[in-house]
């Protein structure tokens, strides 16, 4: 199952890309797939099947999610960004 992953800020810097595709039926699976392909992203943002403290995911620009068990559907956009939105 393929989802589109959009990376922002430090996550983008670490991955070296703004957008990629990843495989998985749940948030945790997608993160594991990303971690395998982007070691710097894994080191900074991902801990196993979870996002590290300081990072958050968003599904399709609508709902913020963190629970690795959250189901994602084919074609969903998964945004990875910093939790802190302070300006």
């Amino acid at each position: 199952m393929t989802v589109i992953v959009e990376l922002f800020g430090v996550a983008r810097q670490c991955a070296g890309v703004a957008k990629t595709e990843a495989q998985g039926a749940r948030l945790g699976d997608v993160l594991v797939d990303l971690a395998g392909r982007f070691p710097r992203l894994a080191a900074e943002c991902i801990d196993g099947s979870r996002l590290r403290h300081g990072y958050l995911a968003n599904l399709n620009g609508a709902r913020f999610i963190r629970d690795p068990a959250t189901v994602v559907a084919p074609g969903d956009s998964l945004l990875i960004l910093a939790t802190d939105a302070g300006g």
């Binding site: 810097q13 943002c45 403290h53 939790t83």
Partner: peptide
């Protein structure tokens, strides 16, 4: 640590 990475990096 990571909680302030956003501010440091960008």
């Amino acid at each position: 640590g990571p909680a302030t990475a956003k501010y440091r990096e960008l």
